[in-house]
Amino acid sequence: MKYSFTLLIALVTIWFLWSGHVEPFMLILAALSIGLSMWISLRMGIVDEEGAPVQMGIRPFIQFAPWLGKEIVDSNIEVAKIILSRKMPLKRNVVTVVAGPKSQLGKVMLANSITLTPGTVSIKMEDDEILVHALSFEGAAEDLSGEMDRRIQALEK
């Protein structure tokens, strides 16, 4: 129930922000389209703690996103240096990272964050292990993933 309510609020907000219309006819269309979307998602059974993650609140945006943004800028500059250098000093290696988060959502967030920072790409995911292809950061890939792991586990509580 909590999740359906959150999804409804999100859909109404998105409709108003994307259209900006308040005429009666458009409001009827809005109610119809939001109702259709709600019905389809309830029928598909995707309205749960993954489809509408209300239990995390806005903490991912205020705690995790700024730190991730800083890391992305840093590693972008590193990778840009490698690309632009005359002879590319590539030290490619494949490391295995153990995923700490217990929920599926946490694991997906961890794998996506690893891929989002340039220089590390998660190439395969089995139960608790993520196979990471790293470009030239010898110990840094493990350090970065460990820090991400810790922060995402803090979000899950």
């Binding site: 992305i72 800028v73 972008n76 990778v79 840009a80 690309i83 590319m88 590539l90 490619r92 891929t115 989002l116 920072t117 340039p118 220089g119 790409v121 190439i123 292809h133 470009l135």
Partner: peptide, 19 residues
């Protein structure tokens, strides 16, 4: 264009997609 093989090229694609 410059990276030698496929898995390294993924990183090049990632740099345009994020920053």
């Amino acid at each position: 264009l410059r990276m030698p093989e496929f898995y390294s090229r993924l990183h090049g694609g990632g740099i345009t997609d994020t920053l």
